[in-house]
Write a protein that binds this DNA or RNA. Structure first.
Lengths: 144, 144
DNA sequence: CTGCCACTTCAAGTCGACTTGAAGTCAAGG
DNA sequence: CCTTGACTTCAAGTCGACTTGAAGTGGCAG
């Protein structure tokens, strides 16, 4: 398969595939002239990468999860640690979601008069709510 | 108060305060010479900004939540929308967390042999799991 | 054999939220 | 009055994950 077919069948842009290869996240099985050739195993790799990304691992971390042999060598403690990280995030997001819903429904003249809102405010100021970057960017498939 | 006191009392670096002012997220009440002077109301503003950031709003969105009068004018529909976004994110994170925990515990010889892991893999590949950027960056107070 | 165009490389650009650095100003303590 | 150093501005740098653009190459249909 050449790069465009991998791109078409995986949904991952060719530029990203080249980028991933450069970062040693995927490997081509050879060249035809200049052109990369990929084997079907690349799809599993791309799946694992997508999974890792979705779990919140960086590309560098994901790169570390493959042995030089090519097979995944996944540290179970790392998975557990990430699961716990996610748990903490989930708790924060739940608090935030509930706070937002309350604020949306609250009939106090100003949000500043609402005790629930003020509690949330204090939590945010104290950094309890994770301070920065939760993201939950909604997936725009064609990013214009 | 000058900027260093606001920084000290809020925990927000002076560089960030200048940046926020430039982005019209906060306002100083005047100058003494060149130096900015802030009133105490800046702390409430900073709290609201922290809250908005924790909820996943961008600085631009947060800037839009204040009237030119300075007081928050928060659209309840926006709060509800964000709450629903958070809900979706929470569902994804829960699935991911459970998948990670299972993968960590699973005794299959390779993760590829584990049905649960494979299910997760398919979900990630299909984009169901939000594909990119969940972040949940743990807050490092002193970022070196 | 030729020409097209999908591929290639490499450097640079993008985005958001800041931080850092250089060069300059000036309020206040001695 | 003079020095000090905390402040100021403005430009540029950072980080991660890619994307974009320019310039070049070469596989293959005609």
């Amino acid at each position: 398969m050449d790069i465009s077919e991998v791109a078409r069948r995986s949904g991952v842009p060719a530029s990203t595939l080249r980028f991933y290869e450069e970062k040693r996240l995927i490997a081509s099985i050879g060249r035809r002239g200049l052109r990369r050739l990929f084997g079907p195993e690349v799809f599993e790799r791309l799946g694992l990468i997508a999974l890792g990304r979705a779990a919140g691992f960086s590309l560098a971390e994901i790169a570390g999860m493959f042995g030089p042999d090519g097979r995944p060598r996944i540290d179970r403690r790392m998975l557990t640690a990430k699961a716990e990280e996610l748990d903490a995030t989930i708790r924060q997001l739940r608090a935030m979601r509930d706070g937002l819903r309350h604020a949306a429904a609250c009939r106090a003249p100003s949000h500043m008069q609402c005790p629930t809102f003020r509690r949330l405010l204090r939590a945010a100021a104290s950094g309890e709510l994770g301070g920065r970057s939760i993201d939950h960017q909604i997936d725009r498939k064609i990013p214009r």
